[in-house]
Amino acid sequence: MTDTLQPDGGPAPGLQSGTASGSGAQAPLEDAAASRLQLVWRRFLRQRLAIAGLVVVALLFGVAYLSPYLGRWQYDQLDFTAFLEPPSASHWFGTTQNGFDVFALTMRGLQKSLVIGLLGALMATALAATVGAFAGYFGGAVNTALVTLIDLLMVLPAFLIIAILSPSFRGHTWLIFVVLLAAFQWMVTARIVRGMTLSLREREFVHAARFMGVPGWRIIFRHILPNMASLLIIDATINVSSLILAEVGLSFFGFGVQPPDVSLGTLIGDYANAALTFPWEFYFPAAFLVILVLAINLVGDGLRDAFDPNAQGHH
């Protein structure tokens, strides 16, 4: 029974009660859940950087997928009249020593990076949510087994393991690579989800459901996971950028996306040594990569602030 010091913590007072009428009932209010989403959205919109990030991501998406119709060259097309040409009207970002168009390559790489990031993040977050929630909710042997798995995977150096496995997906679809990336990306989140589940499990509404006879798996998907939606959304966003960075790291050494596929990572790996001599080969893909990751991180940061305005002392 304390006075709320920070009225913006928890449900805002304005949502709790309007003008109370005598019969224990309420004057009409808008839907509280809808208004919570609106509130989050309003807070998000107020953060100009996050909005900018969102716009940039959308633009990059558009440019990457429209590029085959924008540029004059395709990523697998060679221009035998232009080797190692600096940017020009014909080759906006210049060409490589084989005569590939750097713009087309970069856009192709951008496509791949975006898809890898989004797909992998979705998989990683879904896995984290499921494993974390089951470990936390059921406890006992299930918990021990899953926690050991998490611990083990965290000790396994992801970078090294994927590298070791890289010969086996050479020549196969890059989807295997995405699955592997995701498989090493979920553990930290799973731990957080498990921790939150442990505390949610003791929340009274979960007890209530249990004492009604609702089965555990249903409690998890109906009560526990929806109550960490904000964490999961933020996590998925951050995962997108982490996965894009991981892809770059692995592809840099040739352990990631395999030729003839092109990603931002393979481009950066191939042309890192050309950065001084033929800067367009390196700096265009690198710049697109940094802009993409930065934009996604801005969106993630904005979401975090919008969902939880107190987390970083924002008022």
Partner: peptide, 30 residues
Amino acid sequence: QYQLADRVLTVSSFVILSIPAVVLGVLFKN
């Protein structure tokens, strides 16, 4: 918090964490 020094630090760490180590390495080398 929210003073110039804080903003500079926050923004630069944010940007650095968005740059892959490879790119950062190339930048430093050059």
